[in-house]
Write a protein that binds this DNA or RNA. Sequence first.
DNA 1: TTGAAAGCGCTAACAA
DNA 2: TTGTTAGCGCTTTCAA
Lengths: 366, 366
Amino acid sequence: MSVPARATSPSGSGSRPAARQPAPRAAPPAARAATRADVARHAGVSTAVVSYVVNEGPRRVAPETAARVRAAVEALDYSPNVAARALRMGSSEMLGLVVPDITNLFFAELAHAVESAAAEHGFLVTLASSGSDVDLERELVADLAGRNADGLMVSTVLTPEALTALPAPRRPTVLINVSAPFAGYAAVGSDARQGAYDLVEHLLGTHGHTSVALVIGESTERLPEPRERGFVEAFAAHGLPPGPVVRTAFSRTGGYDAVRRILAWRHRPDAIFLSSDQQASGAYRAVREAGLECPDDVALIAYDGTSQSAFSWPPLTVARQPVEAMARAALQAVLDPVNAPAHQQLPTELVVRRSCGCPSPPSPTA
Amino acid sequence: MSVPARATSPSGSGSRPAARQPAPRAAPPAARAATRADVARHAGVSTAVVSYVVNEGPRRVAPETAARVRAAVEALDYSPNVAARALRMGSSEMLGLVVPDITNLFFAELAHAVESAAAEHGFLVTLASSGSDVDLERELVADLAGRNADGLMVSTVLTPEALTALPAPRRPTVLINVSAPFAGYAAVGSDARQGAYDLVEHLLGTHGHTSVALVIGESTERLPEPRERGFVEAFAAHGLPPGPVVRTAFSRTGGYDAVRRILAWRHRPDAIFLSSDQQASGAYRAVREAGLECPDDVALIAYDGTSQSAFSWPPLTVARQPVEAMARAALQAVLDPVNAPAHQQLPTELVVRRSCGCPSPPSPTA
DNA sequence: TTGAAAGCGCTAACAA
DNA sequence: TTGTTAGCGCTTTCAA
């Protein structure tokens, strides 16, 4: 059997001609990794001692023995087999996070916040995205649990019914980004009702608008959707009938399509409330394409408030989700399940920028 | 031993005040998971048989025995301990992916593509982000390897020197999103030089611009940065001296700051080439804030072409990175390291939209 | 202060 | 067709 010629692609490195070297090693086939036994042998100690020095406990080791072990570790480039330790300990210093779509900036930022918070406690987090697929979500959760994840945080796409039908999870599990608690799970989310209320109230109160449309996605959560509730309540507080509601996908195109439709109505609303930053992104495009100006022709507001929202033009007025706080709360709940509240609902922050009609803040850091 | 009462948490329909109920079970403390031995006992067979059934091999099992086993699995809600299997097999059907910043849409889309491609081969991918921290990246890679990841894909923030100084990785490792091969690693990236060339040539050729500024980040890669090379070469092809180069962070604020500076120059360039979508996002804001119009006052083009770029206004002309192809190539390389080319450089796609001055495509799907 | 050894859950070679 | 069992790399109790 001849080894297939290792075609090095013409790496158009401007200066040097493409390397046509004698088979640059592409990816080293795994040389067997050193084990704790190898290190012990090399250092002339028992495997227990190696453990003690690697883990700095639970027994003391004579300084010079420890030094010998460390030298051996160095020499053999030893690194512990995490799977073995996880098996032995039944835990892995690792937490699992499952989100529907990592490509949605909100979830990416949430994941980032969770990672940071976990790192502070010495935990790594394994991130998996379910693509909003119910079966994949289930598989991912089971897999993570089987890897001895010490806890699971999941932004579920399951309905409450499907969720309660599930066998009790093996690991502390918290539902993240949900607006209502579910039996058997700790849950953390943002106060979407209040956030929506604040936003719409700002439009109605400060700007004196009277017609605001809501663009919202289909949620798997218990209805009525909290953002919709907040929307309705804000109108009620002003003695106004609630504005029209358009249901569409929680995506850029969802927002785009919905807003195009809305702008074609006989009576164009004063403002549109997008239920996510993603939808808002589509909304901007639809507004511009229609030759309209925001906020003069239509004001735009949105729920989420990812870092992108400060950079749209005009800058987007949002109810910012408390991403860091949610991450922290979820972590807390997962690390101390016994004392975890059934449901934590964290306040959003109203960030007024220019898309609602207010004067623009000086810079995108605002 | 009493079974802990399964307190169903108060389904907090926002109408009621916060729950102060008697300690609703937040997250069920792990009831010991059923093991293969439990299943065997329950089904009255040996553990081997359970293995055979669960793994559909390597030995045949009598249909009715198998049925009994499956029933037991069901009854005990058994799911295999992945860590144990990984330990035993030295492999885990899991691939590791390390990126600098999952909050950057480009990496999120890359991660998504990798996940999808991996799923087609029955692999899960564990995603970790390094926050562009060199030490964390190292730690993450070691950890993933210790978890018996079957392969690693890393978008490294290490310099080539630091990289070659590393001990040979234990697992097939491919560098993703790099423009040059490194000794000892398979690598895949996009042809950034060509992509940049196409973009700038479009400005120079089609639009007849003569002054284009480049905004680029500090790269850890071997210099000269390929995008910069393509930029320079395009000018050379038109017999023009290369435009000015501004170095800044690969971030929205980086782009914002750089463009603000550029717009304050005595001689404002006809166009600005942003080296990433993130920077472009900042650029838009800077242009608008300066009261300028794109593309009339300044044209904007960028490298990356994430899904967001179709939704800016005006829609952004980009060299789109071949995210899916890179993911596929990386996967291929990791699964078949022996035949992996040292470096694959995949072509970008020039996507002409309106920010360069061309007429707008009809819809964001274009 | 160090070593020997049991056992975490799983797979598969070997035996029955 | 099914059962028995060694051993993957690790931690830790117990003994020396």
